[in-house]
Design a protein around this nucleic acid. Sequence first.
DNA 1: AAGTCGAAGTTGTATATGCAACTTGTGTGC
DNA 2: GCACACAAGTTGCATATACAACTTCGACTT
Lengths: 147, 147
Amino acid sequence: MNPEQPPQPDKSPDSYCIAGRLRMLARVVTGRYNEAFAAEGVTFAQAGLLMHMFAQPGIRQAELSKRLQIEKSAMSRDVQLLQKNGWLTDNLRNGLYLTEEGRLLAKRCHKIWKALNEQVRTDLGTDAVDGLRVFSDHVFTKLLPNQ
Amino acid sequence: MNPEQPPQPDKSPDSYCIAGRLRMLARVVTGRYNEAFAAEGVTFAQAGLLMHMFAQPGIRQAELSKRLQIEKSAMSRDVQLLQKNGWLTDNLRNGLYLTEEGRLLAKRCHKIWKALNEQVRTDLGTDAVDGLRVFSDHVFTKLLPNQ
DNA sequence: AAGTCGAAGTTGTATATGCAACTTGTGTGC
DNA sequence: GCACACAAGTTGCATATACAACTTCGACTT
């Protein structure tokens, strides 16, 4: 795949592995976001869910699953974890609602997210961000089965 | 973040979340690769490691960690899993070597990978693949600390 | 109302991943 | 040779994720 390189990120230019590259990038970028949310005691994944639930109270797990392309059982467990922390009301099956504590946390997370996402966009530059958007659009139109 | 959309992948065009998007893409694309490797009884992550070890026998965990940007403890466990399946010799600490069975599997995986990766590139198109490459290059130069 | 079917959600099991703390190995200076 | 420092690897613990199988819920039919 990429023989004989010194200890360096694997960035072979041609015919690189799409899945491998995506997963590596996700690890790197997730790490950066996780650092930023650590002060609030949440991971990026958790913060993201909280922000979705804040933006759309009562949303169902099934809808979040489709939007985020996370398997329903994974979503179920993510949701249970948030609930265990007291951020969700206990009527999970009737739609997801944040507790007051959850709403406050979601707001703080959104503040952090907004600043960080801007920072990262600036750091990477327009070309990079556009590149990812183009790739992303093609995946949605060409790789996803139905909707 | 993305209020009021019907059950659809979250593809809000402007100011989308870099980390969220990357993670979603990684989930989607990983799924596709995992399907392809399922016949061999391995995941994409495992197949990738096997191919690296095949291409560079004796490579150390530390080097793979840096190349793939996987935390060393995660790498340690991934390696132990491969060994448990009889694909690695037992001298893990002196570099990673495939068993004969491991080498054969790695070759079959490479065949699958090569065809699939080409297929995905074709499906997505040059624009998309270039877009990801550009993004990726910027992450390596701007987001990774040292090397 | 009872039965049925499909969607939504949960649980069992396994892998992939990270952080912190620990252990082991290696080399360097004395 | 020893002691110390640092790199490599492992282990404890927790989260994120998927697939399969199961349960529960709701709507529709009769």
